[in-house]
Design a protein around this nucleic acid. Sequence first.
DNA 1: TAATTACTTAACCATTAAGTTGACTAATTA
DNA 2: TAATTAGTCAACTTAATGGTTAAGTAATTA
Lengths: 122, 122
Amino acid sequence: MVDIQSSELDLLFYALSDPTRRQILSKLNEGVSTVGGLAGPFRMSLAAISKHIKILEKANLLHRKKLGRIHECSINPGALKSAEACIQFYTQFWNEKLDDFAEHLEREGKTKIEIKNRKRNR
Amino acid sequence: MVDIQSSELDLLFYALSDPTRRQILSKLNEGVSTVGGLAGPFRMSLAAISKHIKILEKANLLHRKKLGRIHECSINPGALKSAEACIQFYTQFWNEKLDDFAEHLEREGKTKIEIKNRKRNR
DNA sequence: TAATTACTTAACCATTAAGTTGACTAATTA
DNA sequence: TAATTAGTCAACTTAATGGTTAAGTAATTA
């Protein structure tokens, strides 16, 4: 089960709640980049991007490797697994509810229903 | 593909970034509840919980049904799908990278590797 | 009708966030 | 060595967050 209290999740979801930071992650999905490289497309200052990167780093979503004066940033998807698990905890429960409801209807002798657009990998 | 700029995601991830709000969602996973019922286990004021509920509602994670003076709250997992998709956009890309790397090693005639703890449902 | 219950809203406070600019450090290049 | 480059850090402003209490509203109960 997911630890609902985890402050790791606080940092994670908080980091993901900003569009600039999601854009940075998106860019890192295309490959590694430097701080300046990541700052490129944005109109805000380098210092601002530097702060965003630190937040992503703290959330364990980004890894930094110092090569001389250049900081090579890469995405670190490990932390995303926690977020995914947390979200799936809620959606999975909902899927179970739907299954229960379908079973209930069946027991009641009502029309058999088919629920679409939903994973059934229990 | 996921819209990285979406302000819907801002609201969603922001709503999920607070432990109190995640606890409320967790409780709603066990069934519907009133505002007062949700506030019960917390030491903070009802007004504070009321605010949290409004944030969850705005993020489309919670649905409210007014029955007289009672507000019946239920979890609305639809919005979670967006968050899940967004996260899977990143993790999936990472999985592809690993696959590419594995293929690269194979092409190079190196030892065949097996990557564990990872979904391979491409 | 009066009191209570279930909530929301408003006003407030302390803390944090996101951005700025300017000064700083350390690595590289001329 | 001097200048430039890559990035951080500190100080500051403005706005938003998360909590409080007190007052207000509408539904229910006595």
